[in-house]
């Protein structure tokens, strides 16, 4: 990874809109840890969910464009925050490094000279934290430790599957454990933390996704979780925004705060990151507010 901790950063669309707090908290945390984050000056949508069609290359072009831009800007590595961007960029890039090399076809198609080299590396912020930052460094920056707060990390699919892109053991992920522990949280390892939230089916088959929301939150809750930490805006939406719908069939389910892991970090480090854009149901927000408010937590602003 980059020397002097300067990293090229690919935000992706949702981090500039609904998930602005994800980005702002991550940037605040990075700054506090002495990591210089340089956003690609030009980028486009990663293409979202990776196309599995082995024949049609078209759906991969969006990702390829980003890889080419990174190269043009002299970056050999790109870091992402959004799990889906990570997954899609990485799977696309693997197309060029695997045996079944699609590089020539893509470059021909784009009529690019010299074209993409296939050499850019994609990684997720969590991998960076694991490899470059010691938990003590995080611990040293904590001003309002999460003493006693039970945080359940939720990984979902996109960081763990398929196995070629896994950043951790797909069946027993624990990459967030040292970080959350350093914040003083009680880490809840719940069995459904690598289960799919239903992903994009939320747009088409909402009932099916609501069932997932219920199961996942219920599992975390019965293991004693006070909140769930995520790293994907789609997981965030399905686990958070759909809670109201869950309660219409499962009234007993208590509201469960869903936060990006970087938000959890920023709060414990006493960093101001709120952008004011948060799409969170009332009761979830209320549950979040009930979690031991910390004296150093700046601006607990009203929820939109």
């Amino acid at each position: 990874m980059s020397e002097g901790f300067r990293v090229a950063y690919f935000p992706g669309c949702t981090l500039k809109t609904d998930a602005r707090d994800f980005e702002s908290s991550a940037l605040a945390v990075a700054r506090a840890l002495g990591i210089e984050v340089a956003e690609l000056s030009r980028w486009n949508c990663c293409g979202t969910v990776y196309s599995l069609d082995a024949v049609n290359l078209m759906p991969r072009l969006a990702s390829v464009h980003n890889l080419i831009r990174a190269e043009e800007e002299g970056f050999s590595e790109i870091m992402t925050l959004c799990s889906m961007c990570y997954n899609t960029l990485k799977q696309t890039n693997n197309l060029f490094t695997s045996k079944n090399n699609g590089l020539a076809a893509i470059n021909d198609f784009l009529c690019l000279k010299p074209g993409y080299s296939g050499r850019v590396k994609i990684y997720h912020f969590l991998e960076f934290l694991r490899e470059k930052i010691r938990p003590e460094q995080v611990k040293n920056l904590v001003v309002s430790p999460l003493d006693g707060v039970a945080v359940a990390p939720y990984y979902g699919c996109l960081l763990l599957r398929p196995k070629e892109i896994a950043i951790d053991d797909p069946e027993k992920p624990e990459i967030l454990t040292p970080i959350l522990s350093a914040l003083g949280a009680k880490v809840i390892d719940f069995p459904l933390n690598n289960e799919c939230c239903g992903a994009y089916q939320t747009a088409m088959h909402q009932e099916a996704v609501v069932r997932r929301t219920y199961r996942i939150i219920n599992s975390a809750q019965s293991e004693g979780a006070d909140m769930i930490a995520v790293s994907c805006p789609l997981c965030h939406y399905n686990l958070s925004a759909l809670q109201g719908l869950v309660r219409s069939t499962h009234p007993g389910l208590k509201a469960m705060p869903i936060l990006y892991f970087t938000e959890v970090m920023a709060r414990a480090m006493g960093l101001d990151y709120r952008t004011g854009v948060r799409v969170i149901p009332q009761d979830v927000a209320a549950a979040e507010a009930r979690l031991r408010p910390s004296p150093n937590d700046p601006g607990r602003e009203a929820v939109k």
């Binding site: 992706g12 669309c13 949702t14 809109t17 609904d18 998930a19 949508c45 293409g47 979202t48 969910v49 196309s51 759906p59 959004c82 889906m84 992903a199 994009y200 939320t202 747009a203 088409m204 909402q206 994907c232 805006p233 789609l234 939406y237 925004a241 799409v279």
Partner: peptide, 26 residues
């Protein structure tokens, strides 16, 4: 191709990531 409209039209709250993935897949 599935012709049903995404349910986002109802509440307008779907994040892009959901919308675009949905168009991608369907």
């Amino acid at each position: 191709s599935i012709t049903e409209k995404p349910s986002c039209e109802d509440n307008g709250t779907l994040p892009q990531i959901a919308l675009i993935s949905h168009f991608r897949k369907f």
